[in-house]
Simulated assay, not measured.
Amino acid sequence: MQIEILDPETEDEIAERKLNAEKARKALPKLLKFVRHIPFAEDVAASYYCAFDKETPGRVRGVLLAALAYFVVPTDVIPDFILALGFSDDATVIAMAMGIVSGHIKSEHRREAQLLLGTYKEKKS
């Protein structure tokens, strides 16, 4: 059975997507705690979904997981509690990782990220 990208999602796919968003919501407490203060939150979440996608090549997963690990580790070059600067090093690491692997971050990874962050807007046709 071939699935077309533009086929509408089934109820099961929508339920699975919501379940995955809930799992990620529990797995990414730092992201969700500071989400309003992080302008690149969607990139972080999309990177997370891409890193755990079975179709993502191993080297891409490695780059993304390293960047995500840097993001969640509380001790980094510039401590996150320093206003205006705290996330600048995290943003730089995420941006570099995204630049390296951007071709592997798919629209479904972005949609999952938007669902997680509550920013998903369904396209009307």
Rank of each mutant, 00 (worst) to 15 (best):
G99T: 12
K54C: 01
V93E: 01
F81Y: 14
T92A: 13
A24G: 06
L116W: 10
A67T: 05
H104T: 00
I94K: 08
P39E: 07
G58A: 08
K33D: 04
F52N: 03
T119C: 06
E22P: 00
L117C: 09
V77T: 08
E55R: 15
G86I: 11
E11R: 09
G62S: 11
L68Q: 01
V35M: 11
E16T: 04
E108D: 03
F34E: 09
Q114T: 01
L85D: 10
A97F: 09
R59C: 02
V73P: 00
D89C: 00
S88T: 13
P29T: 04
K124M: 09
G99H: 02
L68S: 04
A51S: 15
M1A: 11
Y120S: 11
A46E: 06
V44I: 15
I3F: 02
A45M: 08
P39T: 12
H104P: 00
E4W: 14
C50P: 01
G103Y: 03
Y49T: 09
R61Q: 15
D43I: 12
E11S: 07
E112V: 00
V44T: 05
A69I: 00
H109N: 10
V63F: 01
S107N: 03
R36M: 10
I94H: 08
L117S: 01
L116Q: 06
A24E: 08
L65T: 05
Q2K: 14
L115D: 09
L28M: 15
A51D: 07
D7Q: 14
G103E: 10
E22Y: 11
I94C: 01
I94G: 07
A27R: 13
I94E: 08
G99W: 10
V73I: 05
I14L: 14
S102L: 04
A27C: 09
K33L: 13
R59H: 10
S88H: 09
P79Q: 13
A41T: 14
E16D: 10
K18P: 00
H37M: 10
K54R: 13
V77C: 02
V93W: 04
F40Q: 03
V60C: 14
I82P: 01
L68T: 08
D76E: 05
G118V: 09
G118M: 11
R61L: 03
E9G: 00
D90G: 03
M96I: 05
G58W: 14
A69T: 12
F71C: 13
A45L: 07
D12P: 01
S107K: 12
P57F: 07
L28N: 10
G86E: 11
D53V: 09
K121D: 07
R61A: 06
F87M: 12
T56I: 05
A66N: 10
F87W: 14
V44N: 02
F40C: 08
F40S: 02
T56A: 03
A45Q: 02
G62E: 13
A91K: 14
I14S: 05
T10L: 06
I3R: 15
A41W: 10
C50A: 15
Q2C: 02
H104W: 15
L116M: 07
V73K: 13
V72K: 10
S125Y: 00
I94W: 06
